[in-house]
């Protein structure tokens, strides 16, 4: 199995943990993994991304344009920004909730995440928009956004990782007191979840 996965969003949304969990789950299956992510200044509310590559024969962690199997968009506009990396027929899993950049609030221009979502709908054949607003309310924490998207991507089959694979990674890499909440987030979009 060879997979190129891109996670993108706004600094502070939990992309780093999500990419660690994907890597841990893949390694558990005995697969080589490489990844790269934004660390440093941009983490303070700027655009951030992670590239994750799974499979044999990898040389570098960086993904070429048009070769990502999956994009996990933690924010609609950031998903649009990374869209040139998605391969034809690739899967995009995107959170419905937009985050207004300070620059947009200041200029009064506003920022319409709906525009971003409708662009994604037009461009991406396999698009999954997750109603993370409702999900976070139901689960009772805005912090589970990353696991919600991870779950949705896993259920779509595009990650090549199962719920069980990710569940184990959560148990190993997330403090125990958050297990329950995160496991509920993981299962939230599962077709069997009521």
């Amino acid at each position: 199995m060879n997979k190129n996965i891109i996670l993108c969003g706004v600094g502070g949304q939990g992309t780093v943990l999500a990419s660690k969990l994907i890597a841990a789950a893949a390694m558990k299956k005995g697969l080589p993994v490489m990844s790269a992510e934004t660390i440093g200044m941009a983490q303070r509310g700027g655009s951030v991304f992670s590239h994750i590559r799974i499979g044999e024969g990898l040389r570098s962690p960086m993904i070429a344009r048009g070769t990502a199997d999956v994009i996990l968009g933690f924010e609609p506009g950031e998903a649009v920004r990374m869209l040139p990396y998605l391969k034809k027929g690739g899967q995009a899993v995107v959170s419905i909730r937009g985050i207004m950049p300070v620059t947009a609030a200041l200029s009064g221009a506003g920022y319409k995440s709906e525009e971003m979502l409708s662009y994604l709908e037009k461009q991406v054949e396999h698009l999954l928009v997750v109603d993370t607003e409702k999900a976070c309310r139901d689960i009772g924490s805005p912090k589970v956004l990353n696991i919600l998207l991870l779950g949705a991507a896993a259920h779509s089959g595009a990650l090549g990782l199962s719920d069980e694979d990710i569940k184990e990674a959560i148990k190993e890499h997330v403090p125990e007191k958050f297990h329950d909440m995160n496991l509920r987030a993981l299962a939230y979009t599962h077709p069997d979840t009521p």
Binding site: G45, G46, G77, V80, M100, P101, T103, Y111
Partner: peptide, 8 residues
């Protein structure tokens, strides 16, 4: 796309 520079 909105520019999203890092902020405090």
């Amino acid at each position: 796309l909105p520019v999203r520079p890092p902020v405090l």
